[in-house]
Nucleic acid binder design. Structure first.
Length: 419
RNA sequence: GGAGAGAUGGCUGAGCGGUUGAAAGCACCGGUCUUGAAAACCGGCAAAGGGGCAACUCUUUCCUGGGUUCGAAUCCCAGUCUCUCCGCCA
């Protein structure tokens, strides 16, 4: 969320920054409400002062007057709270302002490739899709998931289940031992406030799975990504600057409704309601965001390098970025069956956007109390990594060669085959 | 599920109707001392919001939301969370 105080200082700059996002915001209304709000606050404070003075004087003759003032304050307060609420409603639905580096563009077609890495394998047969391979091996079962649960779920079985687990462990180990992240095994449910903190609420409620609880109790949601719960570790906190940067990593299931993606990637496990993802989160001093984003992105691509999977790095255009992001790199892995790259990781700097929502701050010696910078990135999406391995490491006979770095995690198994 | 106890600043913790934004300690920052460091001593140190070019100033905030009162951290009600005991269950 944006700080109204900062917006006020440079309203035109604010408008201009958001123009890149192609969002429809009633700026005039925002400005009006703010002006109105401040007038009411001033009125209220004047009366409050008067009341306070009477109370301090303990002069009984003034008590009746004080009561009058109280009523007056109450009236103004009602009005002011209403305006404040409209103001908050508008503000909490405004996305982050794109960083200067971010190219202007409408949608994913305007994203820009930064570089490619790895070699694309030449097949002497037509490469099969991951779901065909998986089903033939009897280790991916979509029909069974439909029976027990519904669409967009999958049973991963046998050696592929082991591969999935191996991938999680391999990624976690790498980020923990090599990249300095602290391992976390977090709750998979998040409160409403937590979901607000990272920006999933209020605007994207439709994408979230909410858990049904007794009426009147606080709402809870299945996390759509560990980013939500890891980032909120610093919610409502004044962080000791010495503990920055903080880096967390977790492997968790993620739950998404995928509303509005009907007909998109209906086959296979590219787009599921539930999937495992290894997520990295960094909390940094606010001026360190850009450096940390590069570092984090390298942590993500490092995994692909080790797995020897070909990929490319994209910078997202303004129109394709997530709500809370100021700058995002997508890492796309090569999928032979589709003959194209598909997203396998997304690393974003959210500048102070989430920190302001969460009230996550630290004290800087010269600059006072500052909002922290928050970053998140997949390192990597485990389900999609599984797909990439199935497709890139498939052999003509339907078997899968296991990448060398994963073998220690799979009892030194070298190949996945029917037997 | 039954019975209690509690929630105060970065942390620990006092206060339980009237300059209490809040004692004390720790942490942190500045200084004196020291060859340097430690210790000791002195000083500083909450956040959010409003006004002001600024110095500064005002308001709010002691879990959240209501209420009582001229006045609430302190009393009442509701909610959230934490802890202890009993029961139940991984």
């Amino acid at each position: 969320m944006h700080n109204l105080k900062e917006i006020r200082k440079n309203f035109d700059g604010f408008k201009k920054g958001l123009k890149k996002r192609f969002v429809d915001i009633d700026f005039d209304k925002l400005e009006d409400l703010d002006k109105n709000n401040r007038e009411l606050i001033q009125k209220k404070e004047l009366l409050e002062k008067e009341k306070k003075d009477i109370s301090k004087s303990k002069d009984k003759s003034l008590f009746a007057k004080s009561k009058d003032i109280s009523e007056n304050i109450e009236r103004i307060n009602e009005k002011q709270k209403l305006i404040q609420k409209s103001l908050d409603d508008i503000l909490s639905n405004i996305p982050n302002i794109p960083h200067n580096d971010v190219p202007e563009g409408k949608n994913e077609t305007d994203n820009i490739e930064i570089n490619k890495s790895g070699t694309i394998r030449k097949f002497d047969f037509t490469p099969s899709s991951h779901y065909k391979i998986g089903e033939k091996l009897g280790m991916l079962d979509f029909d069974l998931a439909t029976k027990t649960t519904g669409s967009r779920f999958v049973f991963v079985k046998n050696k592929l289940a082991l591969l999935e687990r191996a991938l999680s462990n391999f990624m976690l180990d790498t980020h923990i031992k090599k990249n300095g992240y602290e391992e976390i095994s977090p709750p998979l449910l998040a409160s409403e406030a937590t979901m607000f903190g990272t920006g999933q609420l209020p605007k994207f409620e439709n994408d979230q799975f909410e858990v049904k609880l007794e009426e009147g109790t606080d709402r809870k949601f299945l996390i759509p990504t560990a980013e939500v719960i890891l980032t909120n570790i610093v919610k409502d906190k004044i962080i000791d600057i010495k503990s920055l940067p903080m880096r967390f990593v977790a492997s968790t299931p993620c739950f998404r409704k995928e509303a509005g993606s009907y007909g998109k990637d209906t086959k296979g496990m590219i787009r599921q309601h539930q999937f495992y993802k290894v997520e990295m989160v960094s909390i940094v001093e606010q001026d360190k965001c850009s450096d940390e984003l590069e570092r984090m992105t390298n942590c993500a691509t490092g995994i692909l390098d080790l797995l020897e999977l070909p990929y490319r790095k994209m910078i997202l255009c303004s129109g394709d970025m997530g709500f809370s992001a100021e700058k995002t790199y997508d890492i796309e892995v090569w999928l032979p069956s589709e003959n194209r790259y598909r997203e396998i990781s997304s690393c974003s700097s959210c500048s102070t956007f989430q920190a302001f929502r969460m009230k996550a701050r630290y004290k800087d010696q010269t600059k006072g109390t500052l909002y922290a910078g928050t970053l998140n990135g997949s390192g990597l999406a485990v389900g999609r990594t599984l797909i990439a391995i199935l497709e890139n490491y498939q052999e003509k006979d339907g078997t899968i060669t296991i990448p060398k770095v994963l073998r220690p995690y799979m009892n030194n198994l070298e190949k996945i085959s029917l037997n």
